[in-house]
Design a protein around this nucleic acid. Structure first.
Lengths: 244, 244
DNA sequence: CCAAAAGTGTTGCTTTTACACCCATGA
DNA sequence: TCATGGGTGTAAAAGCAACACTTTTGG
């Protein structure tokens, strides 16, 4: 900030500051994102990430949490900053600098008709990110395809060395359910036995509840909560994916 | 952006968008950051990260690169976005949303008297980040201590699995010089022999120039350039540091 | 009974770590 | 000659991958 000699805002053209949210969940064994259908120009009819203006009195993270609650009714899910996208011209109307946030939610709420005029919808991320797909600018508005891709990549990378995957599960979950998260987000098959050893062997990573469940079928499984240790060292290595 | 019904800027109070830069280098076996002494209120006399306003026609990254060149005269060094800091009240004068960038430079230029009014200076990061240090709000202006800490942590983390360390070296460097980067940034001692095997064994990570040098003293060492492979898999594990 | 998922044991392989040892230079 | 850093060898330990096998439920 060394060169801020004056603070007359009229010297600088107006800039809008917004948040955009990559909200991911797992539905029907598929990694999906919450998107809204735009009801007006520009990009009318395209999907867009949910988001909105940052209010004068709130932090960027607060703005993201507020938008999330407006859109889903849910609070307290995992939320982290992803990056900021501010190229001139990314919004044709005016200069918009947008802080993107990555959010993860378990048990996705059915959203059709949030508080917003536009309709929110869960869409499989493969709809937009398949490598075979041509760049279809009319499908995702603005630079939101890039933001979505960055969000998915962040989530994939963090599964390796952190407890992020538990953010896709309810408060109590089985090792098998946690493994399904890895398999779906990475698009790979993992060896159930080695995975089990890995996560239960990392001290403090999973906290046993003492309860059992048979909700997955088969032999009853222990229920766990996320433990205090949220770093996996050594990490779970991501195999080369069979599917993108 | 679902709730942007209108785009009348007057509906929203003015927001300034700036970039702040965590520029790191290695000088005298010490990890140092480029900081400026503030010549005016607020935080007059404190250190601050270099930075400035984003111009209407430039991207955030362009703004960061421009500020870097103004401050150091150097171009083309490593530059990546670190995160965005926008809490209300972080700047007492007005709402300022700042995109922070991490930059790394080898062979630090002597900076005293850049194009700016304020004086730039290389300062060891331990001056600000030592765990033993009390929170001294008058030392680093605004929330710049947090930004600096985030930048250093990003650099430390990325050494593990990427070729980022080469950004601290000139275009040609020896394995020993590269290892010194790791040791200084992490504050640990590494086994020179195992390190050598690791980096030379990762195919494509280092590209031999065919040249030798004796500039470190001792037996002549091969000179390398950074190779095409910029991911280390498996990573170099960071030992628990002996010094912060 | 069978199918399905949980969980344990074992084996061979790769990687890491620690350290002995030799090499090539400058002083 | 010695000190200094470069580089190879090697063996023990740790970690990983593959898979045989047992356990406990539901249907």
């Amino acid at each position: 900030m060394s060169s801020k000699q004056g603070y007359d805002p009229s010297k600088y053209p107006p800039v809008a500051v917004t948040v955009d949210i990559v909200l991911l969940t797992i539905r029907d064994d598929s990694l999906e994102a919450l998107l809204v259908r735009r009801g007006q120009e520009p990009f009318k009819g395209s999907y867009a990430l949910p988001g909105g203006f940052v209010r004068p009195d709130e932090t960027l993270a607060d703005a993201a949490a507020r938008e999330l609650e407006e859109e889903t009714g849910a609070r307290g899910m995992h939320l982290e900053q992803l990056g900021t996208y501010g190229d001139p011209g990314r919004d044709p109307r005016m200069r918009v600098v947008s802080a993107a946030y990555l959010a993860l939610i378990p048990n996705p709420p059915e959203v059709t008709g949030g508080s917003d005029a536009e309709v929110a919808e869960w869409v499989p991320i493969a709809t937009f990110l398949d490598a075979s797909l041509p760049e279809s600018p009319s499908l995702l508005a603005f630079d939101h395809r890039k933001i979505l891709r960055d969000g998915v990549e962040r989530a994939r990378a963090k599964l390796e060395y952190s407890g992020l995957a538990t953010a896709f599960c309810g408060t109590e979950f089985t090792v098998g359910e946690l493994r399904r998260v890895y398999e779906i987000v990475w698009g790979v098959d993992l060896d159930a036995r080695n995975f089990h050893r890995k996560v239960t062997g990392t001290l403090g990573f999973l906290e046993p509840t003492g309860e059992m469940t048979t909700r997955g079928g088969g032999r009853p499984a222990q229920l766990f909560r996320r433990g205090a240790t949220q770093t996996l060292n050594p990490p779970i290595l991501r195999p080369t994916p069979s599917v993108v």
